[in-house]
Structures are given as C-alpha cells and as structure tokens.
Amino acid sequence: MPRVADHDQRRAQIARAFQRLLAADGFAAVSFSRVATGAGCSVGLIQHYFPDKDALLRFAYDDAVSRLGERVRVRVRNGEAARLPVAEVLLDSLVELLPLDAERDVEYRVRQGLQAQALHHPGLAEVARRAGRDLLGYVTAVIGDGVGRGEVDAGVDTGLAARVILATVQGLADQLVLSGADAFPARDALGQVVAAVFTGNRAVRDR
C-alpha cells in the first residue's frame, strides 16, 4: 500500500525551514530554492503546498505564533496545577516570549521579521493583530484574576497594566538579541515589572 503523505507535517517542515533561514539571514535572503534545500524537498513540492511566497509567509508566521501560544498554555496549566500565585504563573508564561535559548531566539527573529512585513501585507497584518489581541487579552485576564484573588489592587486599570507588562517583554526581548542572552537577568527584570502590578504577591516581589 502506498504511503499516505502527512500534509500537515510537510507544511510545518517547509515553514520551519523558512523560519530558520529568515532568522539566520533576514527576509531578503530567503527564496523558494533555499527553503527547498533547507527542508530537504523540491521547489515544486513547496509550490504544491504554497502557491506563492505570501502564502508561505502567512503560514510560517501563524506557525511561529501558534507554537509560542502552546508553550504559554503549558506553562499556565503547570502553574495552575502547582497552585502557584497568579503573578508567578504570569511571569513564567511571559518568559516564553524572551529569546533565552536557540528555539526562542529563532521564533523572536521570525516574529520580528514578519511583523515588519505586516506593515505592507494585509495577510500578515491579520496574523499580527490576532496574535497581539490574544496576548493582550490573556495578560489582561490574568491581572483581572489577580484583582479577584487580592494579588492586584482593585483600582488598577487591568488593560493599561497589561500593555505596560507586554511593552516590557518586547523591550527586554530586543535587548537580549542585541546584547546577548547572558548580558543581564531578563527574567528578574520582568519579575520586577510584574511585581509592581501584583503588589499583594510577595512570592514574586521578594525572591
């Protein structure tokens, strides 16, 4: 019996070869022929799954965002199962956005590279808006949960606090890539900003 192709796996294989090239060499250096070499397939196979570069860009962007989101969800599930304070769960999950290892460094570079393209690409802009909206909604909801549990002051503007925290995450990520992951304790820096919102939680503030 002939082997049935795993189309989802092949799409992911191609998209991740594209991501590695984008992270290593920048957007302008990426071509279907180089992606084919990196993915170990033919240009024709890539065109079978992605009729043009725009389709590949959108899928690759969505794939990077989805993998990041899954790791955040795992962190949240583990933290909730361990009955950690809300602030600590938030901090552990947001650390996944920082390029602290090779995998997260590639994802950061892919997100940044494709987000820049999204300024002039409606399909990528849609992915960027959805990812940003989902992340903002998550952080805002966690802060709201903190209000309910007494970890956050009732007068805090949860949406504004979420934006400040996310802006800090982005700034730290940029600094890590420019100065190196060992240049400063990024998790501790982020922890201070989270602790400034979760003023009732000493577990994060004092460690």
Score class of each variant (00 low, 15 high):
F18L: 08
A181V: 15
A60I: 09
D153C: 01
L114D: 06
D145S: 07
V95I: 15
A203W: 04
A195P: 13
R111I: 12
P122S: 07
A118M: 06
A39D: 06
E151G: 05
R34A: 11
L100T: 15
R34I: 03
R67H: 13
A196T: 13
L84G: 03
A128V: 07
L124G: 03
D92I: 00
T37G: 05
R130H: 14
H120S: 12
Q170C: 02
E126W: 03
E103D: 15
A116R: 13
R130T: 13
E107R: 14
G148T: 06
A162R: 00
P51C: 10
R109Q: 13
R202I: 02
R187K: 11
L119G: 06
V89Q: 04
L21M: 11
A36Y: 07
L166E: 00
T37Y: 04
G69M: 12
E96P: 01
A17E: 08
F32I: 09
P85Y: 09
A24K: 11
D105W: 01
L98S: 05
V65A: 14
V194F: 03
Q19L: 04
A125N: 14
R187C: 09
A81I: 02
V194W: 02
R163Q: 14
L22T: 07
A154D: 11
V169Y: 10
H121F: 06
P85W: 11
I46D: 00
R202S: 14
A196F: 07
A186S: 10
L178P: 00
R58M: 05
A154F: 00
G132T: 08
D6W: 05
E70Q: 13
D101M: 08
V139T: 14
A128D: 11
A36P: 12
D63P: 04
V4P: 04
E88G: 06
D92G: 10
F50E: 00
R205T: 06
A82K: 13
